[in-house]
C-alpha cells in the first residue's frame, strides 16, 4: 500500500482533495509542511477528513504542527509523528506518493 504525503494547505490548494479522490482504501496519508492545517478541528474540511478516517490512517508531522502553533488541538484520529516516525512510515508502506 501507498503512503501519500501532502504539503499544501487545503485552504489554498487542491492537493488534499486530489489525494483523497485517488488514494485507495488502506493507504495512509501524512500531512507535512502547510498541509498540517488540514489537521485543525472545526474547519470546512473536518467532516470530510473524519469520514476519510475510516478508509485511511492519517498522520501529521509534529514539528510542522508545532511550528505553526496548532499542535495542541488537532482532529481526533490524526496521529502526530516526528521525522523518525515519518521515515518509519515510509518503510512500512511499499511506496510513497507526493502531492505538492
Amino acid at each position: 500500500m501507498i503512503l501519500h504525503t501532502i504539503n499544501r494547505s487545503p485552504f489554498g490548494s487542491s492537493c488534499l482533495q486530489s489525494c483523497l479522490d485517488v488514494a485507495a482504501a488502506g493507504s495512509a496519508i501524512i500531512l507535512i509542511e502547510d498541509a498540517v492545517y488540514a489537521a485543525l478541528p472545526n474547519t470546512q474540511y473536518t467532516d470530510q477528513i473524519a469520514a476519510a478516517l475510516g478508509k485511511h490512517k492519517f498522520y501529521a508531522l509534529d514539528p510542522d504542527l508545532k511550528a505553526r502553533g496548532i499542535h495542541e488541538a488537532t482532529l481526533d484520529g490524526i496521529e502526530s509523528v516526528d521525522y523518525d516516525g515519518f521515515v518509519a512510515l515510509c518503510t512500512e508502506f511499499s511506496k510513497v506518493v507526493s502531492w505538492y
Binding site: 500500500m1 501507498i2 479522490d21 488514494a23 485507495a24 493507504s27 511506496k95 506518493v97 502531492w99
Partner: peptide, 17 residues
C-alpha cells in the same frame, strides 16, 4: 477513471510526482 488510477498507482515500483 479515478478508481482505476488508484489501482494503477499501487501496481508501480515508484511513482514520481
Amino acid at each position: 477513471a479515478t478508481q482505476e488510477l488508484s489501482l494503477m498507482l499501487e501496481q508501480q515500483d515508484q511513482v514520481l510526482s
